[in-house]
């Protein structure tokens, strides 16, 4: 039972990080970033390169390795986010049909990105050294491994930090303002272009964090971003694009459903259960769980 809850929580927090990145980007700059899978993989590879460098220097574990892995993953993804922004966001931002064209542009980037990873890193999966050690804590009948615990804790901390920052700082206020009314934001001196790039970097960093921690179990490969992207999309949809509480709740539901289905039904049914849940949510609430923002925006 505990194991079930733990694995649900791990899945929820990882997918939640990716989903919040997607949701946040869409809400503030009106672009659906479907290159999030590419950004995800970029973080994984950045962490991999970092680990290799350290291993070559003779360091295989310790805080330098663990923290460095997390930081390099986040940095790699943030840079990838900026890269996506400079290609798909800046040139298109004030053109006609920005939404559709932005969507297609990010899709094209993700197509190119996968191939570039394939060219530079080859098709084999790359393992990352453990961040949180390999131990386990036994609780009652079940147990929880350090890496699961670490993933949950770090994801929660990170999310709380980002939300707090959004709530209280000037930059956060500017981002929220831009979500509500781009004209109003321009009038109070918020540059859509600068803030948009900032948003892309932050959601990239969140995705990178998820990437490094998921790589603990799934490794890094050129196509490892596809699954998180699709599940992230599904969650951000169900949560209502742009709503952080909605996304968190949706992530919890999806994580729980995935863990339950995998355990009591069959792994092969997971996709259909997830899909069914999301369709159900969307049929009853077409704007997702928290998607009131859309209405406000219109």
């Amino acid at each position: 039972m505990i194991e079930l809850i733990i694995s649900a929580a791990v899945l929820a927090s990882m997918y939640g990080l990716v989903a919040i990145g997607i949701s946040f980007t869409w809400a503030s700059i009106g672009m659906l970033n479907l290159a999030q899978g590419f950004i995800f993989t970029a973080g994984g590879y950045a962490a991999y390169l970092y680990a290799q460098t350290l291993t070559n220097m003779g360091i295989t574990e310790g805080p330098v390795m663990s923290i460095g892995l997390l930081v390099s993953g986040m940095a790699g993804s943030a840079v990838a986010g900026l890269f996506v922004g400079s290609i798909a966001f800046l040139p298109l931002q004030d053109r006609a049909n920005f939404r559709t064209r932005g969507l297609i542009a990010t899709l094209a980037i993700s197509l190119i990105g996968t191939q570039l990873w394939l060219i530079f890193f080859g098709p084999q999966s790359k393992p990352l050294p453990p961040i949180f050690g390999t131990g386990r804590i036994e609780i009652g009948s079940g147990g929880v491994s350090y890496s699961q615990l670490g993933a949950i804790v770090i994801a929660t901390l990170m999310l709380t930090a980002v939300i707090m920052w959004m709530r209280s700082s000037r930059a956060g206020l500017q981002m929220r303002a831009m979500m509500m009314n781009p004209l109003g934001a321009a009038v109070v001196g918020v540059s859509v272009r600068v803030t948009g790039m900032r948003v892309l970097a932050i959601s990239g960093a969140l995705t990178g964090l998820a990437s490094v921690m998921l790589a603990q179990t799934f490794f890094v490969s050129p196509t490892s971003g596809v699954q998180p992207l699709t599940v992230g999309l599904i969650i951000s949809l169900a949560g209502g694009l742009g709503s952080i509480p909605g996304t968190v709740i949706a992530a919890a539901i999806v994580g729980l459903a995935e863990a339950l289905t995998a355990r009591y039904l069959a792994q092969s049914l997971v996709p259909f259960v997830l899909f069914g849940i999301v369709v159900l949510i969307l049929v009853f609430r077409p704007r997702g769980l928290g998607g009131l923002l859309e209405d406000v925006r219109e």
Binding site: L32, L103, Q227, T230, L237, L282, P286
Partner: peptide, 18 residues
């Protein structure tokens, strides 16, 4: 029931699930 954009995202995940 769904808006165009939501529908696009929903269906994008479908082939991965298949």
């Amino acid at each position: 029931r769904l808006d165009g954009l939501y529908y696009a995202l929903l269906t994008l995940g479908l082939s991965e699930f298949c």
